[in-house]
Write a protein that binds this DNA or RNA. Structure first.
Length: 206
DNA sequence: TACCCTA
């Protein structure tokens, strides 16, 4: 009674009905200010090259637009690659912006800062990528190890990039792993509070 | 302040 769900036969990926994950190439376009495009490209294009190779997406940067202070950037590739590339570009852009702001704040006197300590917090949606909180701390893993935890089958955690980015494109990256298909989420966070924790936390404030 | 890459 074997069914053979969908192992790695290497034929077609039924993961997405009506969508070939292997040939699923999307394209996204965005514009980057001329002053910030350099930060994204980097010297000799090392930065953009790194982003290209890291994300695996095809990033095309058009020449300076005449009359517009922005550059057209086209990102094409698989959704995961596009997401990753976009995030990397966004991060670089933000970093550059912050750098410029910090530098400009120290040089010349701005007629804006008169009183108060708030320079310019016009951005309501602050902390765009301040997730900080990566995965669970190592302490959670060392909860209790009587044996070699034979419960978890696969131990392939090759997602260093996602951790660094802290984005929610994790499920997409799974597709990039040659369609492993198995262990998409598994029990990442085991019941760390299965034992003990009875009279320990009575009043414990912290 | 700019950094200029690859199809």
């Amino acid at each position: 009674m074997q069914h053979i769900p969908l192992t790695s036969l290497g034929q077609s990926n039924p993961t997405f009905p009506g969508l070939d994950a292997s040939v699923a190439t999307s394209s996204h376009e965005l514009t980057i200010p001329n002053d910030l495009i350099g930060c994204i490209i980097g010297r000799q294009g090392t930065k953009i090259n790194e982003i290209r190779q890291m994300s695996g997406a095809q990033i095309k940067i058009a020449g300076a637009t005449d009359g517009s202070a922005v550059r057209h950037v086209t990102i094409s590739g698989s959704p995961a690659s596009i997401s990753l590339a976009q995030y990397l570009i966004s991060a670089s852009l933000e970093m550059a912006k912050l750098s410029i702001q910090a530098a400009s704040s120290s040089s010349s006197g701005n007629p804006v800062d008169l009183s108060l300590s708030f320079p310019q917090s016009a951005s309501p949606a602050s902390t765009p990528s301040s997730v900080a909180m990566l995965a669970a701390p190592p302490s959670a893993i060392n909860v209790h190890s009587p044996q070699a935890m034979p419960t978890i089958p696969s131990a392939h955690y090759a997602l260093p990039v996602s951790s660094l980015l802290g984005m929610k494109t994790v499920p997409l990256l799974a597709v990039h792993t040659a369609a492993s298909g198995l262990t998409p989420y598994t029990a990442k966070i085991p019941t760390s509070a299965t034992i003990k924790k009875s009279e320990r936390q009575k009043f414990a404030p912290y």
